[in-house]
Design a protein around this nucleic acid. Structure first.
Length: 1085
RNA sequence: GGACGCUUAGCUCAGUUGGUUAGAGCACCUCGUUUACACCGAGGGGGUCGUGGGUUCGAAUCCCCCAGCGUCUACCA
């Protein structure tokens, strides 16, 4: 096909191919052919910051995940890959605040909370689409219809519902914690917002007072007003006798304070530093704080947010800046003669990364997830965690450990399980509040006036709270927002429709009409109130529902339902309201007549569906009003539990909302019976969570294993009672040629957006997938990408050659699997088909095992060596191979598709697509299991290859002109096999062959496994040509080899202990080597 | 300081449960316009598998020591 260009130009095809895929809808699993019968396979993208630009780290993640998803999709899976972005609260806030400061010179305090949040949201909105476009550039086959954002409405609801659940379970608590405080920014800083500055500080050695037995050392004497303990190492004999004692000491002179100092033993204290004793200031030091927690020592704050001393520091010091206070304390210590020594010491002081101000550790009220608190484990109704009984008391830490220990979650590579366990074992309570404005605001309110004692408790609520439920006074929402990981930790289930809304349908209790069997559908008829039995039924029902944390009761206004609902409401202590849309079925003129008569008049569905006799309400009318009702309450009470009290007939229709169950009145329970149904955010009862959770693979970089992966395991097992995913695959980080991290400041980064237009997305993907072991870092260079661009082009040209083969009378180039069997196959054909079947299997197996690099190398070697270098060249000799060639190509394209989707789809479209809906993307995977294998043909062709290579080497060694056809003599015991391939050997090695019983003297020889091959010496240079040197060298080498083999085979212990198969193999090797040696010696005689 | 890794050809890396004369790509050298491809083809050179010890009939592979490098995590009162 001369119209196909010689070189593949990716820019010509990639965007349009992606657009066609997306238009086809096949990224959405429900559009795949026969999707109901496909087994689900789910991956979710680790959400990049919404304001990010595509970088090489995203590329490697997308390349791996897309390869998996495409492979599984072609293998008949219901492949779902969900995209999304992260609001990255702190990082985004920093970017925008910096921008505003630079452009307008304003701080966040100048703007105020509402304005700053609005500005950040605008900024995020303006950047959010960019990363998505760039994901498309990578060829990622993502289901864009399910796109999510960690701060959008569904995720906000999920976060609030989850927070409330944890709050109610007391897994979340509020407590003091020492945080990094920047006095200039008036803000807390997370650990990654800190930088360290080296400085020299004065280290003072002193005692608190003359009657205190231990000397301590510090660089910050002013904090000592907050000391509540002195810590020493447990094995330190100097202080052993004092451990456990408490001393009262007055400190700071007149206007100072009295300290209560307990001596505690802690392993973190170093015996050899300073005096080996450490004054513990829990309020103003992180490690002191940890020590205080473990030793149960109180915390006293002495420095305020404004860097001035607080009242707890004593009347003489309060109000002084901490530096002034330091001077004053030191002066007092000196005057008292308490100082033993002063020396200079080097320190790394933490400073604010934004303004360089030294941070002050301060205690602040924060929200925590208690990882050790036992809670009652809830089971998933779907695929619960195995081995933890529902209702058993467990802690988050225990569950996190358990699911990985029991391999319910597997990590690849396995060694990261160790990292994970180590992390879990050292896990402290997770501080989830952040003192910034952008993010999920903590769903907790506080009563402002606190008029009643109950008002003191924080109010946690899914819905916004407007006034105090106790005193009806004003409330204020907690000012802080949640840690980003708290929302991204819900990623696997909040993106699949969680929280589910639970609707409990309750049929009214027994009424007098139930006893008489009369139709009573209107309402308020005192004659038709609940019977005594009905009232007892309602009471019983209420106690059954007590465990359900229902938000509201909604009831039909018809008397018997109304009455039932009111009994429930009273007992459960929740509100009730009435909705006419779930009233009883209209009886028309049969009102007050018997039910039997009513049913007879109504008839079956065909009669009742749209129009009816006697004014009876048609089925569709009931369905319409109940559907409308369901849609409304599901929206209003999303994620909550709602009790709906109505009538049997309405219940029978309404409970089918959100399913595809056929129309018709279903059975409904007896009086006060219940039906429980769960609905996802879209109002479906068969939603995504049922189908796609747990996810199959969580693929991400190993650097966020603790931050994110662990948090997802924590939150998912707690919230759902399910694991979030079955396998965690961790890839390495991409580095530059010198192994450095890629960064903007170093300018050493490879920007995918630069190299994609240059080399094509397929080449970039190959460069990221090959040469990378799981969990190992990957060194990347533009040369490497260039190399894979060459391979892309090679595949293009292989296709070009195959598609140019004359196709005698066949209309389509497509070759069905079966039609290969009808082909007359030569040994050569059998060889390549057999090789292909083997490679297809090995490639698939390697992919299943996440061995992306090995898989790719296998396939590349097959494509380049076996197919291009050998089979194509041989096919030119044998001719007439268009069927086998096209068969190979179309299957090869399938194998390559997960790695290089664009070039393979482009070729498929131009050669094999049957119509415009035929995409390689959804083509079935090659059926390697049913492909014939020909081991004998593989052996024969291997012999042929060795002979060709030997002749070529002989020519090259003795500088035979490339154009010259040489007369080759072959002495071999495999003549029969080689003779079949004679034309191929002659063409490929540019020679004529004579098979003989002995090699002619005076010729140049080479000896291989297949025998002795000779060529005549070129006449002009006959004298200078000598093969003796080469042959002697080989004789020596093989001699050594034979020696080693003989030694091994005469070793009794080897013979005795090695498996028979190994011994046999060694014997074969020896025999072969000896034969070769004999042949060489024959030539050297 | 703690945890986890890595060290195989000039460079980047494979080497599955110990049984090859240790492989690939790139780079290098020689040759080459043969019905796809110079983003190519043919041939070739190059490694005592970081050091030392041990287990074993047999170690790049398992164990220990040491050295160098890397990542994460604590950090010094």
């Amino acid at each position: 096909m001369s119209e196909i260009p010689k070189a593949y130009d990716p820019t010509q095809h990639e965007d349009s191919v992606y657009a066609r895929w997306e238009e086809s809808g096949m990224f959405i699993p429900e559009n795949l052919p026969d999707f109901q019968n496909r087994e689900p396979y789910t991956i979710i993208v680790p959400p990049p910051n919404a304001t990010a630009t595509l970088h090489i780290g995203h590329s490697v993640m997308l390349a791996i995940e897309d390869a998996l998803i495409r492979y599984k999709r072609m293998n008949g899976k219901r492949a779902l890959w969900i995209p999304g972005t992260d609001h990255a609260a702190i990082a985004t806030t920093n970017v925008v605040e910096k921008m505003i400061l630079k452009e307008e010179g304003k701080t966040r305090h100048d703007l105020g909370r509402a304005e700053l949040v609005r500005r950040i949201e605008d900024f995020v909105e303006s950047k959010r689409d960019r990363i998505k476009l760039q994901f498309r550039k990578m060829g990622a086959s993502l289901d864009w219809s399910r796109e999510a954002f960690t701060l959008d409405a569904p995720r906000s609801l999920a976060v609030r519902v989850m927070f409330k659940k944890m709050f109610d379970d007391r897994v979340i608590y509020r407590g003091d914690r020492v945080i990094n405080w920047c006095p200039r920014c008036a803000s807390t800083l997370s650990d990654d917002e800190l930088e360290t500055k080296a400085r020299v500080a004065k280290l003072y050695y002193f005692k608190y007072s003359h009657d205190f037995p231990i000397t301590i050392a510090t660089t910050q004497p002013e904090t000592k007003f907050g000391d509540t303990a002195v810590a020493v190492h447990p094995s330190d004999e100097r202080y052993a006798a004092l451990v456990g004692k408490t001393f009262q000491v007055s400190f700071g002179g007149e206007g100072g304070v009295v300290l209560n100092i307990r001596v505690i033993a802690d392993h973190t204290v170093e015996k050899d530093f300073g005096t080996g004793a450490l004054g513990v200031t829990p309020a103003h030091s992180m490690i002191d704080y940890m020590m205080a927690l473990q030793n149960n020592v109180p915390l006293v704050q002495v420095i305020g947010e404004d860097t001035h001393m607080l009242a707890a520091a004593g009347t003489a010091y309060v109000g002084l800046s901490y530096l002034k206070a330091r001077e004053k304390v030191v002066a007092w210590l000196r005057a008292e003669g308490l100082i033993e020594k002063e020396e200079d010491t080097e320190q790394n002081a933490p400073v604010c990364s934004r303004c360089g101000t030294e941070i002050i550790p301060l205690p602040k009220l924060q929200w925590f997830v208690d990882v050790n608190k036992k809670f009652s484990f809830k089971h998933s109704p779907r695929r619960p965690v195995v081995g933890i009984a529902a209702g058993s008391a467990v802690s988050l830490k225990e569950v996190m450990r358990y699911v990985v220990e029991t391999e319910q979650i597997k990590m690849i590579p396995e060694r990261f399980e160790k990292t994970y366990m180590h992390w879990v074992d050292n896990l402290l309570d997770w501080c989830i509040s952040r003192h910034i404005w952008y993010g999920h605001r903590i769903p907790v309110w506080y009563c402002v006036d606190k008029k009643m004692t109950e008002c003191a408790a924080p109010i946690c609520s899914v819905d916004d709270v407007e006034f105090c439920p106790h005193c009806s006074g004003a409330v204020e929402q907690d000012p802080d927002v949640l840690d980003t990981w708290f929302s991204s930790g819900t990623w696997t289930f909040s993106t699949l429709g969680w929280p589910y809304t639970r609707v409990i349908f309750v049929r009214h209790g027994e009424a007098s009409s139930n006893v008489t069997g009369m139709m009573e559908t209107k309402n308020i008829d005192a004659k038709n109130s609940l019977t005594d039995v009905g009232k007892i039924q309602a009471e019983k029902c209420a106690s059954l529902l007590a465990a359900e944390d229902a938000a509201i009761i909604i009831a039909s206004p018809v008397e018997r339902a109304k009455e039932t609902a009111e009994i429930l409401a009273k007992k459960l202590g929740i509100d009730v309201r009435f909705d006419d849309r779930i009233r009883e079925v209209g009886a028309g003129t049969l009102e007050g007549k018997s039910i039997t008569k009513f049913i007879a008049a109504r008839g079956d569905l065909s009669n009742w569906f749209n129009t009816t006799t006697d004014g009876i309400e048609p089925y569709m009318s009931i369905k319409e009003r109940s559907n409308e009702f369901m849609a409304d309450i599901l929206k209003e009470y999303q994620g909550r539990t709602v009790i709906v009290v109505t009538h049997g007939g309405v219940m029978g229709i309404a409970h089918k909302y959100g399913t595809d169950q056929p129309d018709g009145e279903d059975d409904y329970p007896g009086n006060c019976g219940t039906m429980v149904r769960e609905f996802d955010a879209s109002g479906s009862q068969s939603g995504d969570l049922n189908v796609y959770h747990p996810m199959d693979v969580l693929e991400t970089g190993y650097d966020i294993l603790p931050n994110w992966v662990s948090r997802m395991i924590l939150l998912t097992t707690y919230t759902l009672g399910e694991i979030p995913f079955k396998t965690v695959y961790l890839h390495g980080l991409v580095r530059d040629e010198q192994g450095r991290k890629m960064s903007k400041s170093l300018g050493n980064g490879i920007d995918p957006l630069d190299v994609i237009p240059k080399y094509g997305t397929d080449a970039v993907r190959l460069a990221l997938l090959l040469g990378q072991a799981p969990g190992n870092d990957l060194k990347m260079s533009e040369e490497k990408i260039g190399g894979f661009r060459n391979f892309t082009n090679k595949l293009w040209n292989i296709s070009r050659f195959i598609l140019s083969q004359e196709d005698a009378g066949t209309e389509s180039k497509y070759v069905a699997h079966e039609s290969i069997d009808e082909q007359p196959l030569t040994v050569l054909d059998k060889w390549i088909l057999s090789r292909f079947a083997t490679i297809a299997e090995e490639f698939s197996t390697a992919l299943e095992a996440f061995e992306f690099s090995r898989a790719g190398e296998l396939l590349r070697d097959f494509t380049w060596n076996d197919l291009a270098d050998w089979y194509l060249e041989c096919a030119k000799v044998e001719g007439g191979k268009h069927v086998v060639l096209n068969y190979l190509l179309q299957n090869l394209l399938k194998l390559w598709h997960p790695y290089m989707p664009f070039v393979t789809e482009t070729i498929w479209q131009s050669a094999y697509a049957k119509d415009t809906t035929d995409f390689l993307m959804i083509a079935p995977w090659p059926e390697y299991g049913t492909m014939a294998r020909y081991p004998e043909a593989e052996m024969h062709i291997a012999r042929m290859q060795r002979v060709v290579t030997a002749i070529r080497a002989l020519r090259a060694d003795f500088k035979i002109e490339p154009k010259e056809i040489v007369a080759v003599t072959i002495v071999s015991k495999f003549v029969e096999v080689l003779a079949i391939e004679q034309p191929i050997i002659e063409k490929l090695a540019r020679c004529t062959i004579l098979f003989a019983n002995s090699a002619p003297d005076g010729q140049l020889a080479t000896v291989i496994e297949e025998g002795t091959i000779t060529i005549p010496k070129p006449e002009a240079r006959a004298d200078s040509m000598d093969d003796r040197g080469k042959l002697e060298g080989e004789r020596e080498q093989i001699g050594i080899y034979i020696e080693a083999l003989r030694a091994k085979l005469s070793n009794e212990e080897f013979l005795g202990r090695a498996p028979a198969a190994v011994v046999e193999k060694e014997q074969d090797k020896l025999r072969e080597a000896e034969e070769k040696l004999t042949a060489i010696e024959l030539r050297l005689k």
